[in-house]
C-alpha cells in the first residue's frame, strides 16, 4: 500500500481514529506520518496514559479537600469530625470555617447565637452586640456614614476575637 499522502513511499503507519462512532483511516509513510501532527502525537501514547493518571491526581486535591482541613490547635481533621460528630476544641469552630457553619445551619436552622453572653469570656461579644444595636439605629436614621464606621468596627472585633 502506498502512502495516501505522498503516494510515493510505502505506507508503514496505519492510523485508525474513531470519534463518535465515525471511523477514519489513514495510511502514511514514516516521513508523512512524522509531519502529521495528529498521527505523530500517537508516538507519545505512553506519556498520554501517564498524563491521564497525572491529571487524575492533580484533580484529587479539589475532590479530597475536606480531609486537608485540620484544626491547627487540636489537630482534628474535618473528615474525622464528619465521622464522629464530635469537635476537638473551641478553635475547631474557627478553623473549620464555612464547613462548620453549614453543619450548624443544617442542625439548628441558624448560625447566630441569640442567648446568654458570659460576662468575662464574652466581652468582645458584648461589645459587638452593643455596636450592632447602634448600627441598626444608624441605618434606621439613614446615617450611612456612621453605619459604615460601625460596620468596620464590628468586623475588626469579630476578626480580633478569632485570634
Amino acid at each position: 500500500m502506498l502512502c495516501q499522502n505522498c503516494n510515493k513511499k510505502t505506507a508503514s503507519v496505519h492510523f485508525v481514529k474513531v470519534i463518535n462512532d465515525v471511523k477514519t483511516e489513514m495510511h502514511l509513510c514514516d516521513t508523512c506520518a512524522a509531519a502529521n501532527q495528529e498521527v505523530s502525537s500517537v508516538d507519545n501514547f505512553d506519556i498520554t496514559v501517564s498524563d491521564i493518571i497525572n491529571s487524575f491526581f492533580t484533580q484529587m486535591p479539589s475532590v479530597a479537600m475536606p480531609s486537608m482541613l485540620t484544626c491547627h490547635a487540636c489537630g482534628l481533621s474535618f473528615d474525622n469530625f464528619s465521622k464522629t460528630g464530635k469537635l476537638g476544641c473551641s478553635i475547631c469552630y474557627d478553623d473549620f470555617g464555612d464547613k462548620i457553619q453549614s453543619t450548624l445551619n443544617r442542625i439548628h436552622g441558624s448560625v447566630k447565637h441569640m442567648g446568654k453572653i458570659p460576662k468575662r469570656s464574652g466581652s468582645a461579644a458584648h461589645q459587638i452586640a452593643k455596636l450592632q444595636k447602634q448600627l441598626e439605629d444608624a441605618i434606621a436614621q439613614e446615617n450611612y456614614e456612621q453605619a459604615a464606621v460601625l460596620r468596620d468596627e464590628i468586623r475588626k472585633l469579630e476578626e480580633g476575637d478569632k485570634k
Partner: peptide
C-alpha cells in the same frame, strides 16, 4: 465563670464538643 475562661464564639455562642449543643448549650 468568674474564675473560669469559657469557650465562647462571638457568632456561635458557647462552644461545645457536639455541634447539636452549640449556642446556648441548653
Amino acid at each position: 465563670e468568674k474564675s473560669l475562661d469559657y469557650g465562647f464564639h462571638p457568632q456561635y455562642g458557647y462552644t461545645t464538643c457536639c455541634p447539636t449543643n452549640t449556642g446556648t448549650g441548653l
